[in-house]
Simulated scan of single mutants.
Amino acid sequence: MSVIVCLATCPDNATAIRLGEVLVEQRLAACVNIVPGVRSVYRWEGRVTVDDEVVLIIKTTAARLDALTEQVRQLHPYAVPALVALPIAGGLPEYLQWIEAGTAPGTHDAFAEP
């Protein structure tokens, strides 16, 4: 199975919702969870920075990763958006199939809900 999870951060809920909706509408992701209230500590331009951010948990497939990455690059307000992809070792087979169906271009939803 080629199902993966991507993690990304956004500066606010509005950006996260807009990005999540585009990714799902374009079938680049089957589901995007939006997790507000994250505090990030990182080094940027030579100094340590602390910011409140929103995390996206993006369920997709390896086949859609390049297009998803390009869409994040185009829509994200950060100069260098945080986006990483992680393999999924396992899970409920029906859910993993739902993710694959939800990201396949030109297909209909396999299930009424995840």
Rank of each mutant, 00 (worst) to 15 (best):
Ser2Pro: 14
Ile4Asp: 11
Val5Tyr: 04
Ala8Leu: 01
Ala8Asn: 01
Thr9Ala: 13
Cys10His: 13
Pro11Ile: 08
Asp12Leu: 02
Asn13Gln: 15
Asn13Asp: 15
Ala14Cys: 03
Ala14Asp: 08
Thr15Trp: 07
Thr15Val: 07
Ala16Ile: 01
Ala16Cys: 00
Arg18Gln: 11
Gly20Lys: 06
Glu25Asn: 08
Gln26Asp: 10
Arg27Cys: 02
Ala29His: 12
Ala30Ile: 03
Val32Cys: 12
Gly37Ser: 09
Arg39Ala: 05
Ser40Pro: 06
Ser40Cys: 12
Val41Pro: 00
Arg43Lys: 15
Trp44Lys: 03
Gly46Glu: 12
Gly46Val: 05
Thr49His: 15
Thr49Ile: 11
Val50Ala: 15
Asp52Phe: 08
Glu53Ala: 12
Glu53Ser: 07
Ala63Gly: 10
Ala63Cys: 03
Arg64Met: 03
Asp66Gln: 14
Ala67Pro: 00
Ala67Trp: 09
Gln71Phe: 00
Val72Ala: 04
Arg73Met: 11
Leu75Glu: 13
Leu75Phe: 05
Pro77Val: 09
Val80Pro: 04
Pro81Leu: 09
Pro81Asp: 07
Leu83Trp: 02
Leu86Asp: 01
Gly90Asn: 11
Gly90Glu: 11
Leu92Gly: 01
Pro93Cys: 04
Pro93Ile: 03
Leu96Ile: 02
Leu96Asp: 07
Glu100His: 09
Thr103Met: 05
Thr103Cys: 12
Ala104Pro: 01
Ala104Ile: 04
Gly106Ser: 04
Gly106Phe: 01
Thr107Lys: 14
Thr107Leu: 09
Thr107Arg: 13
Asp109Leu: 06
Ala110Glu: 07
Ala110Ser: 14
Phe111Asp: 06
Ala112Gln: 08
Glu113Pro: 00
Pro114Asp: 09
